[in-house]
Amino acid sequence: MNKINVVIIEDEVPAARLLHSMVARLRPEWDITILPGSVEEAVEWFASHSHPHLIFLDIQLADGNSFDFLSAAHPTSAIIFTTAYDQYAVRAFTVNSIDYILKPVDEQRLQDAIAKYEQLHNSDNALPDDYLSTLLDALQPKEKQYRTRFLISGVDRFWSLQVSDIAYFYSENKITFAVTHNNQEHIIDLSLNKLSEQLDPDRFFRANRQVILCIDAIHHAEPYFNGKISVSVQPPYKSKITISEEKLSAFKRWLNF
């Protein structure tokens, strides 16, 4: 097999370095290059270099997004998307790209994505002629109806809980709770992963494995250990809510949207 040339386009330097080390550990024979995580610089690089076999492409870049890059660079490469935004995972990337990986990157998930690429590469099947156009179509902003309410069941009645009344969701012992702005708790019959697909990403952010935050609930954020930040919410959460260094840029973009 010819040497596989790989490019990583990621706007967060620690995340790019981590992904590089993980890919290099899994496939030490691959030639891996990290590009600056901006649309402009990545497009310039592709205009003056041979296109790699594979790109690990972050959805959100420093000065735009992957749609802007793909539209301008017209890469002939296979694409594996990386994203900190769960909602992108429902946009059929497994059909239109090789795969997608949610950040922070799980090594087994990365291994599966690489294996999927290799299966295609080893089969000598060229990428479809419409590969790039279907990617661009998948990345086009689309109107989506997000959830507006939940049906809550009590001992002797049902009622509707409006999403606009919810400050945050959290998971504990595999049970999902919704906490309202007036500090009432309700059990929701959905996992946080499912909720991430159904909630408006302009208003809700997956802080970590345990918590999804509403923008209206955030009181302030402050530095924490190891590059993390701590977020305070109203009403107060029972423990400290931290945002990892890998998700920090995405969180700041979300706050500033």
Rank of each mutant, 00 (worst) to 15 (best):
A89N: 03
V155A: 14
H20L: 09
N122D: 15
F150G: 04
F205E: 09
E185F: 02
T82M: 07
Q210F: 01
P36T: 13
S48K: 06
R149I: 00
N5T: 06
A115G: 01
L18A: 09
A250S: 14
L102M: 12
T180I: 09
F251R: 01
R253I: 05
K247I: 06
R25H: 10
N2L: 05
I80S: 08
I215Q: 09
D99W: 10
P28R: 12
A73F: 02
P36W: 10
Y85K: 01
V155W: 03
I8P: 00
E245W: 02
Y170N: 12
I98Y: 12
T83N: 03
V211N: 10
A126C: 06
F67Y: 10
T134Y: 08
V95N: 08
K144M: 15
D129L: 14
T33P: 00
L190V: 01
D189H: 12
N256H: 08
T94H: 13
V163P: 04
N182E: 14
P104I: 13
Y117F: 15
V105F: 04
I215R: 14
P36A: 15
P223Y: 08
K247F: 08
I55P: 00
K238C: 02
L120I: 11
F93A: 04
A126R: 06
K144T: 15
S239W: 00
Q234H: 08
L213M: 08
L213Y: 03
T33Q: 13
I79A: 07
S171T: 12
P128S: 14
L57A: 11
R91N: 11
Q145M: 06
L35Q: 02
I98N: 05
D189I: 04
S191D: 05
K252F: 05
P52D: 07
D129Y: 10
R147W: 06
G64W: 05
V179R: 15
D129R: 09
H53L: 04
M22R: 09
H20P: 00
K247W: 03
D129M: 12
F158H: 04
D130A: 11
F46E: 06
F67V: 04
P128G: 13
N122V: 00
I188Y: 07
K144V: 14
G227S: 07
T242F: 02
E44K: 11
V6I: 12
I166V: 14
R157Y: 13
I229Q: 02
D31L: 11
L192V: 02
A73K: 01
I101Y: 04
Q87F: 15
A78V: 00
V211R: 10
